[in-house]
Amino acid sequence: MTVNSDFLKKKATDVRIDIVRQIYHSESGHPGGSLSAADILTVLYFHEMNIDPKNPKAEGRDKFVLSKGHAAPALYAVLAEKEFFPKEELLTLRKLGSMLQGHPNMYKVPGVEMSTGSLGQGFSVSVGMALANRLDGNAGRIYTLLGDGELQEGVVWEAAMAAGHYRLDNLCVILDWNGLQIDGRNEDVITVTPVDKKFESFGFHVTRIDGHSYEEIAAALTEAKKMKGRPTAVIAKTVKGKGVSFMENKAGWHGKAPDLEQARQAIEELGGEL
């Protein structure tokens, strides 16, 4: 399938605008890691995955699990963009009674496959989903997005060991490698590198890509599909806060909402209006 980068860029920009808008209105949330993941999610939902917003539980569909559940605004934005639910809902993020919880809830939001938020668990659950699909002869693939700080969770490596052992070639892990976590740079908090060698030694096929290049993301996902007998880990180099100049590469924007002025400026940079 050819990659329509102009189309994907337009979608990703809308997703970014909606991320900022949601977090501004909720006055809380995680913009940095949502913006870094926006391009990856856009390629998954608008290029790669076999999903149908009109039939979100369709048999044989591909499933996406947001293991880094705090990037919920990115997932909500892309699901709304894909018309799983009306965009107006986005402005209810994190508000009492909203279906858009601070971290995703699979029973409240159409298109959300797993309730996540506690790091590492989405990956572990994905291993179970991949095993189930194999048992059932279900061709649906399982995609899981992990954060780099998330790799510090022990269960990530338990899950990786199992995925390698059971040769889950229907599982593709994507690492949103923005290099920053709440307390600062990964290597200053707890070193997680070398990630490629780690995943390789756990039996994964590993590719390293620019996580903001639509062509590279799409190519990595295509390559993963062809892989037989091994799960894939796509290490996607990203920029935390990508697309908003004053948020880029700043750990301080991990879990902070922009004020009115900042939100205006952010959305203006992205070419939209608050």
């Binding site: 668990q121 659950v125 179970g128």
Partner: peptide
């Protein structure tokens, strides 16, 4: 975690 994925 894996049990949850299989069950779901």
């Amino acid at each position: 975690g894996t049990a949850a994925g299989l069950a779901l």
